[in-house]
């Protein structure tokens, strides 16, 4: 699925990722934890091809293909999905219009048949229901006036619609109350599939009570310094990050 080898990346000429390696197999859920400034969000942006994030070394292959040379929209269409920590508003562009453009572009790229408007709307309404969003949200501007929790559920709804092969959730749990957290987790769990993998970036182990990871990694100063199973997250919760950094 995803193989990252010795990945190095700079932001504004500052070296952030310093040789990160990660191997995610189909169907696996990997959690990435780590202190502030360790490069967690940078990893998501580098993989998804955001402008301003310069790769200075290493490689990243998605399904055997080097993705680092591709444009951001091509990576997305090849099945890489990033759920944003702070989803941005696009006033006046309806969620429906946005999602249709997104799904159309993706399906066309993947050589799938285009969905007609009626089937698309039906599908979109279904997915809304799955994340407990009222279908009226489809008519509103993208994230316009949504609460924090609604924005995050909107992200998960998009993920469900696009059916990506690799989903990166960038601190999707931040700012969520316990009910919204449950909804998000249910959405992710419903999407679990033997061919779909997840990278879940989080500060807290709380989310991992609901989404049980296969592996947990600790990212510190641009490198993965420790990997383990779910129990590592609990240990971190108890002891903080400093004990590993000292090791």
């Amino acid at each position: 699925m995803l193989t990252i080898k010795n990945l190095q990346a700079d932001v504004e000429e500052k070296n952030i990722l310093k040789g990160l390696s990660l191997d995610v197999k189909p169907g696996e859920i990997h959690a990435i934890m780590g202190p502030n400034g360790s490069g967690k969000s940078t990893l998501g942006y580098v993989l998804s091809g955001r402008e301003g994030y310069q790769v200075s070394g290493g490689s990243a292959e998605l399904n055997g293909e080097n993705i680092l040379e591709l444009e951001a929209d091509e990576r997305a269409k090849k099945g890489l999905f990033l759920a944003f920590q702070y989803p941005v508003e696009i006033p006046g562009v309806s969620n429906m219009e946005f999602l249709k453009a997104s799904v159309d572009a993706t399906r066309e790229y993947q050589g799938k048949e285009a969905l007609d408007t009626v089937s698309f709307m039906k599908l979109a309404r279904e997915k809304c229901k799955a994340v407990n969003l009222d279908p009226s949200f489809l008519k509103r501007g993208v994230n316009e006036g949504f609460s924090g929790g609604e924005k995050k559920r909107n992200e998960i709804m998009q993920m469900m619609l696009l059916e990506p092969s690799l989903c990166i959730l960038d601190e999707t749990d931040s700012g969520l109350d316990i009910d919204a957290l449950q909804v998000v987790a249910d959405g992710v769990n419903a999407c679990r599939d033997e061919n779909r993998s997840f990278i879940i970036v989080t500060h807290y182990q709380r989310l991992l009570d609901y989404i049980v990871p296969d592996k947990v990694h600790v990212l510190s100063d641009g490198k993965i310094i420790k990997s383990g199973d779910k129990s590592l997250a609990l240990e971190l919760e108890e002891k903080g990050y400093s004990w590993i950094e000292k090791e």
């Binding site: 998804s48 955001r50 402008e51 929209d73 997305a76 990033l82 944003f84 946005f98 453009a101």
Partner: peptide
């Protein structure tokens, strides 16, 4: 970037 990331 949100649009690009959604394939647009």
């Amino acid at each position: 970037f949100l649009c690009l990331q959604r394939g647009i």
